[in-house]
Design a protein around this nucleic acid. Structure first.
Lengths: 196, 196
DNA sequence: CTCGCATCCTAGAGGCTCTAGGTATAAGCT
DNA sequence: AGCTTATACCTAGAGCCTCTAGGATGCGAG
């Protein structure tokens, strides 16, 4: 029989596509194998386990998201950069819900594999670069980065979980949240007493 | 044989406990049944499916979290209330990681069941009550509520996923994030041009 | 005491993950 | 071209999972 020409990458991409279509927790070895026209046992040549596959999907998503953000923020600064960064993040989550959800799992991934992924380091650089214009210094810079990441992630996660079901459109709240974060970054509060 | 005296509530609580101990995606009908000293088929008298059980765990968690927040914020206002609210949220997520993760799933729950749960409405009231002191009016109030929820949820979700692995302690960033949100609420930006 | 019913059981179909071991194809060597 | 070797893919199967169907039994109501 003709070989299917599988690789780790093709298996991961098939899994990621399936995750976006039917939801991450419906991604099974059997389904991925079926989609690739192969028996499920064959996948274990390329991927250690289902958990390994999910980890690889998460890494793929992180890389893709970082690339989108890099493209969106290139040549921008200040509020322009903030808005482009945030919108690229949110749009990636909307377009690839299954992939995005994979990034939320406490990934039990092979540390060696994670280390060779370009995503994380690049993402950190991008975020710090975006904040350059606001004139923050460490440790405020780290705190601001974490606040932004929390808000972006939290917003799209709640959106995906149906947390904003009612009344006002999420889009309006999103735009206003970006206004608010921009204002906050321009006027970052000094250390309070009791902050330890 | 003696009856086990199961109820929907006991099954849900057993599932929730299991989720906290071994992780939400290791919660299976079989494991829950084993823990209750019962055959797995017996659970289907009380719970429609595994997905149904997960939805009930999510609802339980939402209610419990709301109660904790209510207790923590009672009699407080201003920044005190904000900090108490946020800390209660985060502590609940830390103490009950499995339950908390259940609340993140796009819950396909029986709408009738969801409607009778006191959590959501109560949670909304609490959040608006906490913001009363900041003098915001609609629609800014809704936007502010969503921003706060996004940030709180995003922070603990990233924390749980190992997103803050390095350098500075998450606790410091958390305290500073609350400082920042307080400052932001006291100085909520007016509508910008281009906000549509 | 007995009737009715909800609760718990056994049995089993079908899907899933993953391992062990076999077959055959593509690539490399002469 | 023929031969060899590595490996991509296969079959078979163990074991766990969800969920349904139908039977038995303990408990409350009369």
């Amino acid at each position: 029989m003709a070989r299917a020409g599988l690789t780790v990458e093709r298996v991961t991409i098939a899994g990621a596509a399936l995750a976006d279509e039917v939801g991450l927790d419906r991604v099974t070895m059997s389904q991925v194998a079926r989609r690739l026209g192969v028996k499920d046992a064959s996948l274990y040549t390329h991927v250690r386990s289902l958990e390994d596959l999910r980890g690889r999907i998460a890494l793929l998503a992180a890389d893709e998201k970082t690339i989108r953000i890099a493209e969106a923020t290139a040549g921008r600064s200040g509020k322009d950069a903030l808005v482009a960064f945030a919108n690229a993040w949110r749009e990636y989550a909307h377009q690839h819900p299954g992939r995005y959800m994979a990034t939320q799992t406490p990934l039990q991934i092979d540390p060696e594999l994670a280390a060779q992924a370009p995503g994380p380091r690049r993402a950190v650089e991008l975020t710090y670069g975006m904040l350059r214009g606001y004139g923050l210094a460490e440790p405020d810079l780290t705190d601001a980065v974490r606040l932004l990441r929390s808000t972006f992630h939290g917003f799209v996660a709640l959106e995906a979980a149906g947390g904003f079901a009612h009344e006002r459109s999420p889009q309006h709240s999103w735009v206003r949240a970006l206004d608010a974060l921009h204002a906050l970054l321009e006027n970052w509060p000094p250390l309070q007493e009791g902050d330890s």
